[in-house]
């Protein structure tokens, strides 16, 4: 699955990172707690979140993620967009809620990857 497939499945608005649409996404994670993303996520390349602040982009950067999808129609501010652009991370927004967004991606074959012990 590519970033572009996710954009279509979730009916996302692409906010930045058009150049990354063809990148492949193998696994995903969803969380509003960046503490948990840092502690439990391993090789997931896309983050779904309802949290909107610069630390979402920083967390994605530390975890080598390539795309952040904001759920519930949330939108990043200009500082976040600039930070994401400088770090090579695509940003998208979907009006779906977290549960539905994760469910739609799962239904289309995307998985959560290995859980950490």
């Amino acid at each position: 699955m590519t970033v572009n497939d996710i954009k279509n499945i979730l009916d996302c608005e692409l906010i930045s990172g058009e150049g990354y649409l063809q990148q492949e996404v193998l696994t995903a994670c969803g969380s509003d707690m960046m503490s948990d993303v840092l502690a439990y996520v391993k090789d997931q390349s896309i983050l779904l979140t309802g949290l909107v602040n610069c630390q979402v982009i920083r967390t994605a950067e530390m975890m080598d993620m390539i795309c952040v999808v904001f759920v519930r129609g949330k939108k990043p501010d200009e500082d976040m967009i600039q930070l994401a652009e400088s770090r090579g991370i695509a940003l998208m927004s979907t009006s779906h809620r977290m549960f539905t967004a994760c469910g739609l991606l799962w239904e289309n074959g995307l998985r959560g990857g290995n859980s950490l012990s």
């Binding site: 707690m33 960046m34 503490s35 502690a39 630390q55």
Partner: peptide, 27 residues
């Protein structure tokens, strides 16, 4: 200890303060 935190609610609303910081640093 995982899950133990003194962070105020304000920090939790920013996505941190789940009590995972020090354990995750050790890990």
């Amino acid at each position: 200890k995982e899950g133990w935190s003194t962070a105020p609610d304000e920090v939790r609303s920013l996505g941190f303060g789940a009590g995972m910081g020090l354990p995750n640093m050790k890990k």
